[in-house]
């Protein structure tokens, strides 16, 4: 009972718990969840959101630390752009490998995740290390590079606004626009999209890959700009992997990604509190997460199997 109380207190129990713990944790999951959902809708198995997020964080931190001082209205958008560019470049490597050499993106993106980890590790010990050269982290950002909070006294920051805007935009693009329709078409039936629709699946896929990477990179910028105000080695505790669960739980629908990101944010916040207050290892939360995900996938599979696809004639 104490455990559940601790869980509830940590996730929803107070205004602080909700606005500053749950939603702050939901922010990167929302952006990366959208990145994964977008890629999966196009049939691209981008498992590399983790690495793309890290590259986005590095790029945004580099802008925050290396550029001459500038006002916040200039600095924050620059960090966003840098983060998106960083993520897109990282995804672009996998996209290029896929297009030129037919390398499966599942393999290349996972491997690039490890390269990204090594890159951030080197950055915080080399080019971007704090001036005393003692700690493996960057200097703390100047005030102009810290993203604005939305509510006084709460840690909720600009990042969630970007996430909500991105969710709305992505839903609109996929449901209503020609570009979104082509994306869904190559994901649901690449051969038919090509043969009946004249769409070139690989061209569309390459662009989607870049956009997906940009969204994940934006999450990285949002983490360093809105939460840590510095670049650390452990900048992402596996957001890129959790995001796959977020996207799948939402059945790749951008609107539901919002709900599912908040849900996973609450699980993380509650789990942290559970560990603090009730001494339950955070692994317990991961077990809960995994159980939920498996149930969702099993139910989806079961429903698919029951649908009379190609009913016998």
């Amino acid at each position: 009972m104490d455990i559940l109380v601790a869980f509830w207190d940590g996730a929803f129990g107070s205004t602080y718990a909700f606005w500053s713990a749950t939603l702050v944790r939901a922010t990167p999951l929302l952006l990366v969840g959208l990145a994964v959902a977008l890629a999966f809708r196009a049939g691209i198995l981008n498992i590399g959101a983790e690495g793309q997020l890290i590259l986005g964080a590095i790029a945004a931190a580099a802008v925050a630390l290396q550029l001459p001082p500038a006002p916040r209205v200039v600095m924050v958008p620059l960090m966003m752009l840098a983060g998106m560019a960083g993520g897109a470049v990282w995804a672009g490597i996998a996209a290029l490998l896929r297009r030129r050499f037919g390398v499966l993106e599942v393999i290349s993106t996972i491997m690039l995740n490890f390269v990204a980890l090594a890159a951030v590790s080197w950055m915080v010990r080399g080019p971007l290390q704090e001036p005393t050269r003692v700690y493996p982290m960057s200097e703390t950002f100047a005030a102009a590079a810290r993203w604005p909070f939305l509510i006084t006294g709460q840690r909720l920051h600009l990042g969630i606004v970007l996430g909500l805007l991105a969710a709305g935009a992505l839903w609109f693009v996929l449901a209503r626009t020609a570009v979104g329709f082509r994306i869904r078409a190559i994901g649901a039936g690449a051969r038919a999209a090509q043969s009946a629709g004249g769409v070139e699946p690989e061209r569309v896929a390459a662009r989607v890959f870049l956009a997906s990477g940009a969204l994940a990179g934006l999450a990285g910028a949002s983490e360093v700009g809105g939460v840590t105000w510095a670049l650390y080695e452990g900048i992402s505790p596996g957001h890129g992997y959790t995001a796959i669960a977020v996207a799948l739980l939402a059945r790749l629908d951008p609107r539901w990604v919002v709900v599912s990101a908040v849900f996973f944010g609450a699980l993380e916040a509650g789990g942290a509190s559970m560990q603090r207050e009730a001494g339950v290892p955070a692994v317990a939360v991961q077990i809960v997460t995994a159980t939920i995900l498996l149930s969702v996938l099993a139910i989806a599979q079961w429903r698919n199997a029951r649908r009379p696809v190609g009913a016998p004639e």
Binding site: A178, F181, R182, A185, G189, A192, S195, A196, G197, G198
Partner: peptide, 25 residues
């Protein structure tokens, strides 16, 4: 495999034939 997408609705499959010609919405 070549003419329709089984998971799409009939309306979506109708639009599929115009997929590369469509612009904007």
């Amino acid at each position: 495999h070549d003419a329709v997408i089984p998971d799409f609705s009939l309306t979506e499959n109708h639009a599929l034939a115009e997929a590369s010609r469509l612009d904007r919405l």
